[in-house]
Amino acid sequence: MRVAAIQMVSGVSAEANLRQAHALLSGAAHAGAELAVLPEYFCLLGRRDTDKLAVQEAFGGNGGAIQLFLADAARELGLWIVGGTLPLSTPELVHVRNSTLVFTPGGQCVARYDKIHLFRFDNGHERYDESRVLEPGREPVMFDLPSRDGHRWRVGLSVCYDLRFPELYRAYAARGAELLLVPSAFTHTTGQAHWEVLVRARAIENLAYVAAPAQGGLHENGRRTWGHSMLVDPWGVVLQTLAEGAGVVLGELDAARLQVARQQLPALEHRVL
């Protein structure tokens, strides 16, 4: 199965971001991708954290502009689309969920994952605290993706800072996950230090493919993200990556390769704790 990890440098205009996302998704579809995964905050990286509140949407029903965009793009392009993250409303409206939505090629939303772990960082120069605007999710979420070659992929969902919590991915592996998705917006500081080693570690320890699309570059709001979107195989080999700038990272997922790796090194069967 050919998979596309979409890298963006999202700005402060949701409309402009959706136009860029569509162009990148279209490129992925024309390159033969069956699944395309957008990065965290693909629809908006505002000047302030609270800008998310202005574009929040109620989940489901008639949806909002972002959900309609994802559904329409999936139908138009014949793609499975994982919509990075978008802000979904909570009852009190002063916080939102940072949510990943999964759409089939028919435009149906079949899974929703709300980011569980909220990023906080302060090195004296950069300060982030997602809990000021975001409400954490509580539940891991998986979905099944039947590929054109007849294999049914078990896919585990996560977002960005979740990457630092291996127990989430171990739980997915215990439930049969073969592909782990990590749409992200790592800061340049933390990404330079830890991004690749964390992505590869999650692949190695769970003998699973990892697709990690990211924000990558200098944004209108002054924030700089690390980028280096990548696809990693179950042995920890980086199949493809893109350092900075908007683009599409394409790679082939091979179910037979995954099975061989798990047979040769049956570490998942040897787990004790």
Rank of each mutant, 00 (worst) to 15 (best):
A177H: 04
G227P: 00
G245V: 09
R148G: 13
V197E: 09
E196C: 06
Q215F: 00
E130D: 12
R148I: 14
V210H: 00
W195F: 10
V155L: 15
E220T: 08
A208R: 04
L157N: 03
L198V: 04
T189L: 15
W235R: 13
G222E: 07
W153R: 02
L179D: 07
E130R: 11
G216P: 00
Y172M: 14
N221D: 15
A201G: 05
A185H: 15
Q215V: 06
V210G: 03
H188G: 04
H194A: 09
D233W: 00
R164G: 05
R202K: 08
A174H: 15
S131R: 08
P136W: 01
D129S: 11
A246R: 04
A173S: 15
W226I: 00
T225H: 04
G245F: 02
F186S: 01
M230H: 01
V159Q: 01
M230V: 04
R164F: 15
A171H: 12
D149E: 15
H228K: 11
L179W: 04
A208V: 06
P146Q: 10
Y161R: 01
Q215P: 09
M230F: 04
V210I: 11
A193G: 06
E244P: 03
S147P: 03
V159S: 05
G156W: 01
Q215I: 09
T187V: 10
